[in-house]
């Protein structure tokens, strides 16, 4: 990659196994088309992304299914993509605020770029990719 002389380091492949046992209902929920958040039984705070432990230090949480109505607060079209997203077409990432007050960051799909505006409505849906990856995205409301 350069005209300057170099030696090449040893190559190492890295991937991490990320534990999800404490938030398993969320990942299971995605398979059933549901988007779940956690709510602290002690202080009442609603958490998305879901967490097993609250900032008030209580771990007494309950699972709540979120509505899917979102208002888009901001967005970007990602054209230059990182190494592990090279196979994707350019994608739009948006942050939407749900009726319940929590915000969600996710891809925004099924809109033409020129249609996307701050303040517009979108629907939050759970999704499983053809490769089996569990995710969620904003899409056009019916």
């Amino acid at each position: 990659m350069s005209a300057m002389p170099t030696i090449r380091s040893r190559e190492m492949r890295v991937a991490h196994d990320i534990p999800i046992s404490k938030t398993l209902p969320f990942w299971e929920g995605l398979k059933q088309g549901k988007i779940l958040a956690t709510k602290c039984k002690k202080c009442g705070k609603l958490h998305f992304p879901p967490v097993a432990d609250c900032s008030c230090l209580s771990s007494d949480m309950e699972w709540i299914e979120l509505s899917n109505e979102a208002t888009i607060e901001t967005f970007t079209h990602v054209v230059v993509r990182p190494a592990t997203f090279q196979h994707e077409k350019p994608y739009t990432v948006a942050i939407g605020r749900l009726k319940e007050g929590v915000r969600v960051l996710a891809w925004l799909t099924n809109f033409k770029p020129s249609e996307i505006k701050v303040g517009m409505k979108a629907k939050l849906v759970a999704k499983q990719t053809p490769q089996g990856q569990l995710t969620y995205e904003f899409t056009r409301p019916e």
Binding site: V78, R81, V93, L105, A106, W107, Q133
Partner: peptide, 10 residues
């Protein structure tokens, strides 16, 4: 986990 893994935010 929440902003890169599925969404590739640069």
């Amino acid at each position: 986990t929440w902003e890169f893994h599925n969404f590739g935010l640069t």
